[in-house]
Design a protein around this nucleic acid. Structure first.
Lengths: 191, 191, 191, 191
DNA sequence: AATGAATGAGGTTTCATTCAT
DNA sequence: GATGAATGAAACCTCATTCAT
């Protein structure tokens, strides 16, 4: 792949992501994508077989990046509390660095993306494992690990969503530490 | 409105809701709605001006019902802890009684519904008020009330979502009490 | 199916057939069909699922009619010579009554229609059977029946094609009798 | 023209001919031609101005070759019967040596090629002349020469088509001699 | 009120052709 | 000459909405 190819492809990715999170996948037209990307409509089909293929590839690629960042962030922690904190920080960092991608794969597009991906919530297992480990090490209280993950992920999601919508007064760092705090309150024994 | 009218209208509501939560609003065609409702496509336009009007009315109506149920459930509680517990129970009850409506207005369709309603999260204020009251009464710790609401609502949402997707082992009552427990851990002082 | 439906559908059939024989199936656009039929482009898709479905249905329907006319024409003949004559007459009659249909299913569109129909040349068997019978009855000379059919059908096809293109001076009746004569020369013993 | 040019051009001819007879001219894309020829799509336009120019040139070139072979085969025959036999043999030989070209110019693509060539059936005159001569020499019976040509050409076409489609049991030599026999039965006086 | 065929604007996709490299 | 990404006109098809019955 040469420079030009990458350029066009990336322009499409960027434009499509932008539009998908604002108007949904179905709600975004190829004409809009092309216009926003500054290319011809036909060019889309050099790089992708269908409009949905853009949506799918965006999802898959960013989910991969997201997972890696979560895993990377916590790989050196042995203490479950630190590990959980690291993952939550990484989650918020991703939301800050790649707000569109984060909205797209995590926050908003549940229904439309459900049709595309069989392995739903492909990052949930990372939380499950941390919680599992924390329980085994008696740092976390006994709780269904899947429920624990759901509660923590739900808090993070909604916190980011509310922040992005300007509904929160806190600054971002405060938001993160408060969410970590809340997560530990939910999970830790001595609370 | 006579019997027949109501019948047709209700059939449309039911069919549309069903399809909207599965395929999204944009992803659902009027033909599909008519077919599922067992009526002709043209009949839809006797009762609604546009397809989006169905989506909007569904949202508004159910949001009204939902709000009422949350408010009704807690109107006799003075203790913030009991009040919060009551609201969460009402939330889960609504999700059980009207799973489609609940998915539609609360859980899934953030992006598509955003376009329709300016007053986002029209039930969030109920949580905000309870938390505000709890803090004033020194039952809950000091926390940005909007953040607190976001965390609690996020947990509930994701818990219901996970349950509906068959990802949790717990039975429903256990799920509810665990979620209440988690919410109180997040908010109460003595945790 | 009410009047209107039939009207639209028939208009589409007629327009499409007309264009298909002139420009080919691939060479005919849905826009042209709609325009010639005097309907909206979208209307086509109420009655047919795809453009190719029109082509296929046209082929199947007319091939059915054509076969029936060949069979009907010869059902009362026992003498193979008479039978063959009757079938050839029926062939030419069809070409005269329904020149477009005849062109479409028999004469021109070999390549395009091949893709649509597995049972190629669905009328060849009628010729094969007559020849088979004629050989058994010692009226026709021994010849591979499939080759015999091919030769006769080939002559008829090309005769009609040449006539339609204005390349022949003969009037139609002369053309038919000459072709019958040629067919019998090819097949009969005493020639 | 150097070696390379010829190579590319010939690759295009070969690939295009192959695809045209299978899928039609309209049904074949330049991308397919390029792929089958093992060249880039743009290269086509170095050698040909349009896709249709390939189709037209293929037709014209092969028609020239075909005519020459028919003429060459019979140039030393004075006897009309021998001459006709020679031409039919040459026809079948061409169909054997260049099956794709033969399919393309003679057998299949009547409709699509009609648009390209004004002098239709550019080889028909060869048959007309032989028949004319045969009639004059009282070897052939009186028959409209154009009709006679149509009948003979129709038989040959259909015989080859049936053979190529595997519908005939005869071997090729038998097929040829049977067709010659049939042609003479149609034309010769003493039949 | 109910129907469902018809509409036509607009969506997705294809493809012959161009052009910078 | 050769490449293949880019173009954009035009193809096929969809679908919310209308309207005659």
């Amino acid at each position: 792949m040469n420079r030009t190819t990458l350029d066009s492809k990336n322009k499409i990715y960027k434009a499509a992501l932008n539009l998908f999170i604002k108007k949904g996948i179905k709600g975004t037209t190829t004409r809009e994508i092309a216009k926003k990307a500054g290319i011809a409509e036909g060019t889309i089909y050099i790089h992708f077989s269908t409009k949905d293929a853009i949506a799918f590839t965006l999802f898959t690629n960013y989910m991969g990046v997201f997972r890696e960042r979560l895993l990377e962030s916590s790989k050196n922690c042995t203490n479950p509390t630190f590990k959980l904190r690291a993952i939550i920080h990484a989650f918020f960092d991703f939301a800050k660095d790649e707000p569109n991608a984060c909205s797209y794969i995590v926050i908003d597009h549940y229904t439309e993306l459900n049709k595309m991906t069989k392995e739903k919530n492909k990052f949930k297992d990372i939380f499950v494992e941390v919680i599992h480990d924390g329980i085994k090490k008696r740092v976390f209280r006994k709780i269904d690990e899947n429920l624990g993950s759901a509660l923590i992920i739900g808090m993070i999601n909604r916190a980011i969503l509310s922040f992005n919508n300007g509904l929160l007064d806190s600054d971002y760092d405060k938001l993160v530490s408060e969410t970590v705090n809340a997560a530990l309150r939910v999970l830790e024994k001595n609370y």
